[in-house]
Computed example of a mutant assay.
Amino acid sequence: MPHHHQPSNLAALGRTWVEAWTARDLERVLTLYADDVVMTSDRIPAMGFDESGTVRGKDALRAYWSKALALLPELHFSLIELFVSPDSVVVFYENERGKRICEYLRVNAAGKIVQGSANHLVG
């Protein structure tokens, strides 16, 4: 069954997510995630992690993002828009290189992120 969250709570989660990343506060970012989180991104194989592009669990996510942050000293996200559904928020943002990205974040009943997918423009 899908969990129904208030749009304002999901929007607040999305804003906190952007703020925590821009502060380069990895532990704050990770507090937003469930222990059994599944994260998918085309950057995961590029960083030498799972070839499938998916990491599973908070510990694997911490390892992946720790490596990514070390390689991206200029990392900065600027929020463009937030989109909400009853059980997810999509954060549309621009990164430090001017790339526009949509991050799909699905949340559980406790309001923690259980699935994240980084969606990049094609081409």
Rank of each mutant, 00 (worst) to 15 (best):
L61I: 11
L121K: 13
I44V: 11
W21F: 15
A60I: 06
A110G: 06
F83E: 04
Q115A: 15
R106T: 02
D42P: 12
R56Y: 06
R106N: 01
R106L: 04
P86D: 06
S41T: 05
R106C: 03
G111V: 02
V91D: 04
L75Y: 13
G48M: 02
S85E: 12
M1W: 07
S85I: 11
R62P: 09
A34H: 12
W65S: 06
A12S: 10
T31A: 12
D36G: 05
R62Q: 06
K112F: 07
R100I: 08
S85K: 14
S117D: 08
H120V: 12
C102K: 03
V18D: 11
W17Q: 10
A34N: 07
L26M: 07
V55A: 00
D35F: 04
D42N: 14
N95M: 06
R62A: 13
E51S: 03
F92Y: 14
P2Y: 06
R24E: 15
V122A: 14
D50S: 05
T22W: 09
V18P: 10
E94C: 03
V37K: 04
R97E: 13
S8L: 05
L82N: 07
Q6R: 10
K99W: 10
G116V: 00
A109R: 06
P7R: 01
L30K: 08
V84K: 06
G123W: 05
K112A: 13
G98D: 03
S78N: 13
V107E: 01
L105M: 00
R24D: 07
Y64P: 01
K67G: 12
R56D: 00
M1T: 11
H4K: 10
S41L: 04
G53K: 05
N108W: 02
D50C: 02
F77T: 03
R43I: 15
T31I: 05
E74D: 11
H120N: 12
M47G: 04
T54Y: 03
D36R: 05
W65I: 06
L30N: 10
K99N: 10
A63F: 00
V90W: 10
L61T: 03
M39N: 08
T40W: 02
L26N: 05
G53Q: 10
E96N: 14
E51V: 04
I101E: 02
K99M: 09
V91C: 05
G123H: 02
S88P: 01
A70S: 14
S41E: 03
W21D: 09
R97Q: 13
L82R: 08
Q6H: 13
H3Y: 09
A23K: 11
G57L: 15
I101T: 05
D59L: 14
D25H: 14
Y64I: 01
G98A: 01
R28F: 09
I101Q: 00
D25Q: 15
W17C: 10
G98T: 04
D42H: 07
N9E: 15
G53C: 07
A118M: 13
G123T: 07
L69C: 04
V91G: 08
V89M: 07
A70F: 02
H5Y: 01
A12D: 11
L30R: 08
R62K: 12
V38P: 02
G98K: 06
N9V: 05
E74K: 14
E94P: 02
G98C: 00
I44N: 00
L32E: 05
R62L: 03
V37M: 01
V55I: 04
S41H: 04
S52H: 00
M39W: 07
A20D: 14
K67N: 12
D50E: 08
V91N: 01
